[in-house]
């Protein structure tokens, strides 16, 4: 997921562990997110017309119908909305990392992202503060992750 394909429609294999299906890859509506990640920045979609933030996949502002959504840098702060500690990995790629924690972070901007939680201190718990960091995970790509505890 690092790098930008010159023409996304030619297909860049996106691996889910050992599995690949379909055209789920950085495409014109999401490539700005992955370009920011490569700079170790977290960006979200923002609708100036509504003054509202959106998930990086969104194309249309629900409130105004505007497609003029901008990439804006997010604070990187939020709280743990929910989580699960994975003990049985979905594939061999992740098997060496168990247990690890995946979950949803509720960002200050009102957007929720699926992510990896990394505990700096104490247990990961719903409502705990979390702060963005960037790590190369098992698939070999740089991804936003969220640290919970001391560093948050």
């Amino acid at each position: 997921m690092t790098g930008t394909p010159a023409d996304w429609s030619h297909g860049m294999p996106l691996m889910a562990g050992d599995w690949f299906i379909g055209l789920y890859q950085p495409s014109p509506e999401t490539v700005g997110y992955w370009e920011a990640v490569a700079r170790r920045e977290l960006v979200l979609k923002y609708s100036p017309a509504a003054g509202r933030w959106y998930h990086p996949k969104r194309i249309v502002c629900t409130e105004t119908g505007s497609t003029a959504l901008e990439w804006r840098r997010a604070s990187g702060r939020g709280t743990v909305y929910s989580f699960s500690e994975v003990h049985r990995a979905p594939s061999a790629v992740f098997a060496g990392s168990v247990p690890y924690t995946v979950g949803l972070v509720a960002l200050e901007e009102g957007v929720h992202l699926f992510t990896r939680f990394i505990a700096d201190a104490g247990p990961i718990a719903i409502g705990a503060p979390a702060r963005v960091d960037f790590q190369v995970l098992e698939g070999g790509t740089l991804l936003p992750v969220f640290r919970v505890g001391a560093a948050a």
């Binding site: 996106l14 789920y24 994975v86 990995a89 979905p90 991804l143």
Partner: peptide, 14 residues
């Protein structure tokens, strides 16, 4: 989602 979720290693139960 293969772009925003799968790279984090979620199993179906998770």
């Amino acid at each position: 989602d293969l772009q925003f979720e799968a790279p984090y290693g979620p199993s179906t139960p998770s």
